[in-house]
Design a protein around this nucleic acid. Structure first.
Length: 803
RNA sequence: GCCGAAGUGGUGGAAUUGGCAGACGCGCUGGACUCAAAAUCCAGUGGGGCUUAAACCCCGUGCGGGUUCGACUCCCGCCUUCGGCACCA
């Protein structure tokens, strides 16, 4: 017997698979299709990380199993290559991001190929390829055409010393990550996408898909739909009123003041009537340095300023109440103004205490002098003229009707979800295909002029006016207006990295099409994606954005289904040996190349699947890797004990059928670790028995193949089995062979196991009682007691309750 | 802070979803082989008690309560850790 040499056989089979194109999806649409999708990687400069192969191997297992089951499988790969790190690297090292991207992709590709994934390399895509982003731009034009893209003033993070816009991640503790300079919020006119228009459908359609429950919950909470009232508070002596959204109109009598966001436009409008306007401006300046996250933190000390000179009128009792500004009210959520009910809201209570504002109890049950009473579900209203004595639920209904009848408010739905800020002041992204003309306003680039390609630039730094580096390329920026022909300017902002990843799974179905984003036939056949696996960290952004775009394309009649992904699962992270996140600075990064070189790709794959619960984070362990290599060594040596035979070994037959069942089911339900454990156990049984037939071994190799494709393919060839393993058929188990004739059943007395009895599979309680009587230990606990109850669960347990 | 998830031997994790807690792997201990080591193979391995041994008994799934014949699993209240929080991807 030759020694197991993974290096040699892995290269050999990878070459054969590639030459024979065995994993390419076929154009034959008569076959049943299966579309497996992994989140395409961002080709970073650090190269592949051992975290990457975990989800890839998992779906590679499913893809390989499906092919053996006779499906036409699409399992594509590509590159999500626009993005900040590449651009920053390019700036620092004065290399074009195109070159950096190409280098990184090349490295990633070699690394992925060395692990033996059965990707459809012939369908590889790259979001930075103009042939690809032509269609990203095209989708944007459609969104604009349908009124879903619009311009709005939005704040960006602005470093006062570098004079550039920063990503949130580049702001650390209010300072610029690069230079330590102060970061403030600066308002810029930006492109927005109306994802809120799809909010209800994004919630409702979750019922039609098979996503892990926690993913659905996260999405629903992120969208944050709530039903309530929009209530009008008149400004005393003025025409205007402030609108607030509340889910608790029943507490209106408890409103003792209002708070508006420091950025609220009302302040500018009435600045002449406001006596302390300087103080207000000063506070606004202070707030501009904080993120929304810092502003709404509950634990922090409340701050705020009263607007002196204007008052609001509570619509239910016509009382005049003060208006304050405070950072805990955000312009971006609801209407930018709130009614404060300090008696029954924790934040309002803290604010009222700090600034000595009155607190009125309107729901009985707590002590509003000591703390806000918020647990009011079954409470009764007090101090509330119209609704006194009513339960909260009924009070809400009555006061809502009353407000509507009197024109003081209307029922409304509010979402936490905000529209998508779609502009970036960056170079390395898709140019937004819009042109601004003094006369015509914003004019879309005509479709036939797509793609709008990124021009060559000398310098990738954003300009010090806060515009993208593209703004400096005069010959690119200055164009004729497509509508009137006058001199006009291109939009110089680019799209966020999320744009390209919002529709990439569609392009895979027809990646070389230059007429459409993909052909109708290809989309009809391949979509929706049957199984999409990705990280939990993408649940609220990427997953939601791509569902939004897909629904939009569905409305246009371009894609045939309203949801892009039939099934979504998620994987856990791989941590360093010290149980911390792998990072360069912690020095605990493991490079998959080292594992492939030392132990082999099959060992890496097996270990990553065996490492633990697929959905949980787990620490890496080099010893664990060795254990998996030992397992494969023992599989290799099985060839020593193989004897001729077309049937399963009698004594092993039942175990083999059980393992087929277990492995087949576990591969489908993310339980790769227990599937491998079952294969290890069967291997132990094989060795205990001392010899196995060719039939035993053949089935074993097929079951292990999706996890360890190279070694199994090699052993297949060594054994002289017909054709290649990847062309064979997934084994089936027989229910008859799995059933046990006799079972061991634990017998409990008062819930504690006191012995086991052996029963025939179809024996009932009477037989169990007889058998139990033969067991001395069980009888010991029954002696002198009366049996009050017997619980018999067939095949599981027999419990005798005595007194 | 808000939303989501998780806590089981020395260690990664299993447990047919309310029915014998610790499968499988790692580590460790002992043995075989070897001049020796590595590799490999065999045996043992939650803690405690009792015993020559087996049998057997008690304790044990983050902490505190509860429901149940029976709880790692369900309920209530805590603690700790991890993911996300909209310009990292």
């Amino acid at each position: 017997m030759k020694e197991y040499n993974p290096r040699e056989i892995e290269r050999k089979w990878q070459r054969i698979w590639e030459e024979k194109k065995v994993f390419e999806a076929s154009e034959d649409q008569s076959k049943k299709k299966f579309y497996a999708l992994i989140e395409f990687p961002y080709p970073s400069g650090e190269g592949l990380h051992v975290g990457h192969p975990r989800p890839y191997t998992a779906l590679d297992i499913v893809a390989r199993k499906r092919r053996l089951e006779g499906y036409n499988v699409l399992f594509p790969i590509g590159w999500d290559a626009f993005g900040l790190p590449t651009e920053n690297y390019a700036i620092k090292n004065k290399i074009h991001p195109r070159i950096v991207t190409d280098q990184n992709v090349k490295r990633f590709k070699e690394q992925l190929k060395s692990i033996g994934f059965s990707f459809n390399w012939d369908r590889e895509i790259n979001t930075t390829d103009p042939k690809y982003y032509k269609w990203t731009q095209w989708i944007f034009l459609k969104l604009y055409e349908k009124g879903l893209a619009y311009k709005k003033e939005m704040p960006i993070n602005w470093c006062t010393s570098c004079k550039v816009g920063l990503a949130n991640e580049e702001v650390v503790g209010g300072k610029c990550e690069r230079c330590g300079g102060e970061v403030v919020r600066k308002v810029k006119n930006q492109w927005m996408l109306k994802i809120t228009e799809y909010a209800d459908r994004l919630i409702d359609d979750l019922e039609t898909v098979d996503y892990v429950e926690k993913i659905k919950i996260q999405q629903i909470n992120w969208i944050g739909r709530s039903e309530g009232m929009e209530v009008e508070f008149k400004i005393a002596g003025k025409e205007d009123s402030l609108t607030v959204f509340t889910t608790r109109p029943d507490t209106l009598y408890g409103v003792t003041y209002m708070v508006i966001a420091p950025e609220h436009p009302l302040i500018e409008k009435y600045k002449d009537s406001i006596q302390n306007i300087d103080e207000i401006y000063e506070y606004r300046e202070y707030v501009s340095k904080k993120s929304d996250f810092e502003r709404t933190e509950l634990s922090k000390e409340k701050t705020g300023v009263e607007i002196k000179g204007i008052k609001a009128i509570n619509p239910v009792n016509k009382k005049e109440i003060p208006i304050w500004i405070s950072d805990y009210v955000l312009m971006s959520y609801g209407t930018g103004a709130i009614m404060a009910v300090p008696g029954h809201d924790t934040r309002d209570w803290e604010f009222a205490k700090k600034f000595n504002l009155p607190i009125i109890e309107v729901v009985k049950g707590g002590d509003v002098e000591k703390e806000a009473y918020t647990d009011t579900e079954d409470g009764i209203l007090v101090n509330s003229e119209l609704i006194n004595g009513l339960r909260v639920k009924d009070a809400i209904k009555k006061i809502s009707d009353w407000l509507e009848e009197n024109g003081l408010g209307k029922r409304a739905v509010n979402y936490k979800l905000r529209d998508w800020v779609f502009s970036r002041q960056r170079y390395w992204g898709e140019p937004i295909p819009m042109i601004y003309c003094e006369k015509c306003g914003w004019v879309p680039v005509p479709e036939e002029d797509l793609p709008v390609e990124l021009p060559e630039v000398e310098n990738y730094e954003p300009t010090d006016t806060g515009e993208s580096p593209l703004a400096n390329i005069t010959e690119w920026v200055e164009v004729d207006c497509p509508k009137c022909g006058a001199k006009a300017r291109r939009e110089t902002d680019t799209m966020p990295q999320w744009a390209g990843s919002s529709w990439y799974y569609l392009r895979y179905t027809d990646p070389h099409n230059d007429k459409e984003l993909a052909s109708k036939e290809a989309l009809e056949y391949w979509t929706p994606v049957d199984w999409y696996n990705g990280g939990m960290e993408h649940t609220t952004l990427h997953l939601l954005y791509s569902r939004f775009w897909h629904k939009f394309l569905y409305d246009l009649g371009i894609v045939p289904t309203s949801e892009p992904y039939k099934k979504r699962t998620s994987h856990g992270m791989i941590l360093g040996e010290n149980n911390e996140k792998m990072s360069k600075s912690r020095g605990n990064v493991v490079n998959p190349d080292d594992i492939v070189n030392e132990y082999g790709a099959d060992t890496l794959r097996t270990y990553e699947m065996f490492i633990g619960d697929f959905e949980k984070s787990v620490p890496w362990s080099e010893n664990g890797v060795k254990g998996c290599r030992r397992f494969l060594d023992r599989v290799w040596r099985l060839q020593d004990i193989v004897v001729d035979g077309d049937e399963y070994t009698k004594e092993l037959e039942s175990k083999i059928h059980k393992t087929i069942k277990k492995v087949s089911e576990d591969y489908e339900s993310l339980k790769y670790n227990t599937a491998i454990a079952a294969l290890m156990a069967l291997l132990n049984d094989f060795n205990d028995h001392g010899k196995i037939t060719k039939a035993d071994f053949k089935t074993y190799l097929i079951l292990l193949n999706p996890v360890a494709p190279h070694i199994t393919e090699e052993l297949w060839e060594i054994m002289g089995f017909e054709g290649m393993l990847n062309e064979s058929t997934w084994p089936k188990y027989e229910q008859e062979k799995i059933k046990d004739d006799v079972i061991e059943m634990p017998v409990q007395v008062n819930g504690k196991v006191r012995g086991t009895i052996v029963l025939n599979a179809d024996d009932g309680q009477d037989q169990a009682r007889e058998k139990a009587k033969e067991n001395q230990n069980i009888m010991k606990y029954l002696a002198g007691k009366t049996i009050v109850k017997e619980i018999f669960v067939k095949g599981k347990i027999y419990n005798i309750v005595v007194k």
